[in-house]
Write a protein that binds this DNA or RNA. Structure first.
Lengths: 112, 112
DNA sequence: TGCACATATGAATAGCTCTTCAGGTGTTAT
DNA sequence: ATAACACCTGAAGAGCTATTCATATGTGCA
């Protein structure tokens, strides 16, 4: 197989995200790409801040499963947490994540 | 485990994305959440339009693997294609996808 | 018509991921 | 102290996924 426009391909490869950056971007998306985690994130998007038991209740998933899910999201910097007594409250980590969730919802609405 | 703020949880659950919508959103993210597919999409973001052989070359992945990846993205409406002779050119399907890719790149830049 | 090329597809396997179960940590209340 | 609670963590298994190999389809050219 030959590339029909070698110059354009070469130019593209230069400006391209590096394999490493692409991997990190994929990692970000991968974390959003699970129904449980997605629901947790959209719950946080609406509520602002919720503890694990709130989330477990809202998403109707075992608290253990929620905890596992949150650990992944926390480690990746997608959510942040704060302790209040024996409860731990989670929130979306930054505005980018919030926009990402909003924008993708738009996409579904209009793409159908 | 009890929810400490039952009213807020109930309100959240009402405005919440439905499990079905969340699943579709997760599906969207899941498709972006693979290094190969992510690199293909970012290549298309930069180049606008590329054929399979271009993509295979740019991303350095087997053309067969690229083809499989593109089928998933095409079926999900994330990329669109057009035939030109024996080649098939792929492009990002809509502006939302483009924004999604841009925004997430911003996230990485600033979140580190 | 026949061949070469670009891409697509099906099947199979290796590798990963999510959930569950069992048990562990930190916190409040009695 | 000890019990109850909210949450976390590690291990294990079922299920899913991405790549590869082999083969098929569709297009242009001689």
């Amino acid at each position: 197989m030959q590339e029909p426009d070698a110059a354009r391909v070469a130019a593209t490869r230069d400006r391209l995200v590096t394999p490493e950056e692409a991997t990190r971007l994929a990692e970000l998306f991968r974390l959003l790409g699970d129904p449980t985690r997605a629901r947790l994130l959209y719950a946080l998007l609406e509520a602002g801040e919720l503890c694990v038991c709130d989330l477990s209740d809202a998403v109707e998933v075992t608290d253990t499963a929620v905890s596992h899910a949150l650990r992944l999201l926390r480690t990746a910097g997608i959510v942040a947490s704060r302790r209040a007594g024996r409860m731990i409250y989670y929130r979306l980590a930054d505005a980018h994540v919030r926009m990402l969730l909003d924008l993708s919802r738009e996409h579904l609405k209009e793409t159908g």
